[in-house]
Design a protein around this nucleic acid. Structure first.
Lengths: 212, 212
DNA sequence: ACGATTTTGGGCCTTGAGGCCCATCATCGA
DNA sequence: TCGATGATGGGCCTCAAGGCCCAAAATCGT
């Protein structure tokens, strides 16, 4: 689980991004602050592998803050109006990544994973960087979840939308009830749970299935 | 369920906000677009009670777009650098709300509910507006969910974090297993479900409990 | 072509889950 | 003060759910 801190004075942006990253199975937002000094203070009590820092913030430039953070966290700088000069300053301040707020969410998520893994994205040219981000596009699932078969994932998706009875599952998948129970048994083992309720929750938590 | 469309050229902002609103039990983001014309096009095929529109967008000002929308949707204008002049223009274009991106997420959520309910926030002074938003602070839960008692919500919260066995629930709540089963029975009735798996999913979906 | 994995299915057995009806006690609003 | 509601608990019954062991196709990678 990658712990992420967000520093941005626009609450709507910060809280939205926070929710979005929290939904991903391998990232957790542990703090949202609205200024550079608040970021430093927050990291004292709550460590975070990655910090997403906006440049434009009141009470001190976001980049100045990063310089003082050292190796306490890996900083990714985001900017509304990204330009080369800002990127250069972010680089000198020790940021590991630099993005415009115009990038897709999943790109930023991949960057968070890459940076948490020790990669330094900021010194790469765009092409190389994007290739590297490809490798981090998928959330790293739990060891158990990774070994789920296609059919098992199908069953979990049905569970997560409320198809919980054995006979209904069998009907939907055109297989016998016994087979459904067998699949569930191996799902329980792989996810280390003991019934379908826990399996459904795990499926949602791991991002295999969505409830809504 | 309030259907919401988001128009903002900063994907990071739009997708983050989208996720955040989707988590709320009474709002659903049905589309995210990156320009004014795209908003008009999207509303043709996918109606939405409320549209959240950024002012600063490439290929046409967001406010110009609103004028052409008429009564197809209720527009809420958000701006990075909010000022009186922008607000005045938004008002004349028929927007129902105007907010800086510095407002908290829950304020915007309340505004979405208010506007979907037919309120016009933009002509109110700040004090009156905030008082009105108070009334819309809480998500309107389903009729069934609204009648849940405190104890029943406790049980749902435990279910949603994986405490699914009757004996474990009884231990956590210091009551007998029989009482747990009785509570569950009334939960099933109120949520119109038939087992704990569906109840747990409903609880997550309604925002009563969080899985992570 | 061959071994591994996946998908399908069986039997058997035990216990837990859910349905239904009822009772007591406390709390709270009218 | 008195119904209504909520929280607690009991009994009883039925069947679904989960545990355990096994096996035959199908698919897939090498």
């Amino acid at each position: 689980m990658i712990r992420v801190m967000i520093a941005d004075d626009h609450q709507l942006f910060a809280e939205g991004l926070s929710q979005a990253l929290d939904i991903l199975p391998d990232t957790r937002v542990v703090g949202v602050v609205e200024s550079g000094p608040a970021l430093e203070a927050a990291l004292e009590t709550q460590p975070a592998e990655v910090s997403i820092v906006d440049i434009e913030m009141p009470g001190g430039d976001g980049i100045d803050t990063i310089s003082g953070l050292g190796r306490r966290t890996n900083a990714i700088v985001v900017s509304m109006h990204a330009n080369e000069e800002q990127k250069e300053r972010a680089f000198r301040a020790g940021a590991k990544g630099f993005f415009s707020k115009g990038v897709p969410l999943l790109t930023l998520a991949a960057a968070v994973r890459a940076v948490a893994d020790g990669q330094d994205l900021i010194s790469l040219d765009e092409t190389t960087r994007d290739e590297l981000l490809e490798h981090y596009g998928q959330a790293r699932l739990d060891p158990g979840a990774a070994s789920l078969t296609e059919r098992e994932k199908e069953i979990l998706q049905l569970l997560a939308v409320g198809v919980s009875a054995t006979d209904e599952l069998a009907d939907r998948l055109y297989i016998s009830q016994k087979t459904v129970k067998n699949h569930l048994a191996s799902i329980f083992q792989k996810l280390a749970v003991s019934d379908r309720t826990q399996a459904a929750i795990e499926a949602i938590r791991l991002g295999i299935a969505r409830p809504n």
